[in-house]
Amino acid sequence: MDAAYAAAEEGSYHASELTRGPWHPEHQHAGPPSALVCRAFEQAGAVHGLTHLGRFTGNLLRPVPIGALTIEVAEDYVGRSVGHFSARLIAGGKDVARFTALLQREADVPVPDGTPGHPLPEAPRAPADCPPVTMPFAGRLRGYGDLVENRVAEGRFFQGPCSIWFRLRHALVAGEAPSPYQRALVAADSGNGISACLDFARYSFVNGDLTVNLLRRPVGEWICLQARTALAGNGCGLAESALYDEAGLIGRATQSLTVRPR
């Protein structure tokens, strides 16, 4: 299948090998299912004219298997300007992740000239000026490293703080063009991996959550993560990423890490 997912009946999907993550050959990387749930949130918000995804939070309860998935979305509250939604991601009859989202109604409110802190910063380098790179785990088995292509804006892959561009090589859902928000969510969960500062062979450092805040709709196909991992020495850590498109800063992502020796 030349896409991360194939849609079945309403709310049900089948994951392809392109969703495979680096931790286990039968488990998905958290980026693609997060983007799939983002798609469901976008559809729920559009009914009310809520077109901007301001915040997306995922609580990753169990590994997400490569196979059949179901998404159930609930409308928690919809007001004049914002709506709060929640969702369950279900596999094998169990909740494997739960999500919440804030969607906002957009309005034309230009930023006045001279506003402090504006214009917002840009990514370190444009993707056209950056060398391509392949994720170290790509090629062993077809997976996430084949779903996306990468270019290095600064630093080095898996050796501490770095800035990496992401672009989807394949559709998220077969027969559909991914939305800008879906492109951002596919990439946003990778901050922990690309800025890894521990040896994969000696340590695991899995994130149990993902929160993404976006200030505007991304433009174009490329998303840059300027990522850093911080470790506390207590078996816990934090990965944080500034997110950019080719026009500049679009938001931030954070992940809580559990660090253990293998």
Rank of each mutant, 00 (worst) to 15 (best):
G117M: 04
V96A: 09
T100E: 11
V133F: 13
A247R: 11
C162Q: 13
S195G: 07
R140Q: 14
A239I: 03
I90T: 01
E17W: 14
Y181H: 10
N192R: 08
D2W: 15
L225S: 01
E75M: 13
G251H: 06
A44E: 09
G67V: 07
V111I: 14
I223C: 07
P218A: 05
W222K: 01
R142C: 14
S16W: 11
G49H: 10
M135K: 05
D245L: 03
D129C: 05
G155K: 08
Q43D: 11
E176D: 12
D113M: 09
R142E: 14
G143N: 08
A138L: 09
P136V: 04
P63I: 05
I90V: 15
F157T: 12
L120D: 00
T134G: 06
E75Q: 12
G21N: 04
L172E: 00
N234G: 14
G139H: 13
A7G: 07
P178T: 06
D245Q: 03
F158H: 11
Y5F: 15
L147M: 07
M1A: 13
G11L: 06
W165H: 00
Y5R: 00
V111Y: 06
D2R: 11
H48S: 14
T70N: 15
P180S: 04
G233A: 07
G93N: 14
G21W: 02
G233I: 02
S241Y: 02
A4Q: 01
S86D: 08
H14S: 14
C224R: 00
V47T: 13
P32I: 13
I250N: 02
L89Q: 09
P116N: 04
Q159G: 08
L141V: 11
V259F: 05
A74K: 15
R88E: 15
L249A: 08
A187V: 11
T229W: 04
A188G: 05
G191S: 05
P131E: 10
S86G: 12
P112H: 10
P65W: 08
A3Q: 03
V64Q: 06
L60Q: 13
V259M: 03
G58V: 14
A107C: 09
A184K: 00
G117A: 04
T100A: 00
P33C: 03
S204W: 00
V109H: 14
S12T: 15
E26Q: 13
Q43R: 15
W222A: 00
P132M: 04
G83C: 10
P132A: 09
P32R: 00
S86F: 05
L231N: 02
S204T: 11
V186T: 09
L214Y: 09
D146T: 07
D146S: 11
L69F: 07
V37K: 01
V219L: 14
S86H: 10
A107N: 14
G193M: 02
C236G: 12
H170Q: 09
P127D: 01
V133R: 13
R125Y: 01
C162S: 11
L198R: 02
R252H: 13
N213Y: 15
A227L: 09
D108E: 15
L231K: 02
H170L: 13
G175R: 08
A44N: 00
S190A: 14
D113I: 06
G58K: 10
E221V: 00
F85C: 10
A153D: 04
R62P: 02
H27N: 12
D95A: 11
A8Q: 12
C162H: 08
W222P: 06
H118A: 05
L243C: 02
P261V: 01
P131R: 04
P22T: 06
Y244C: 08
P218T: 08
T229D: 14
G155D: 04
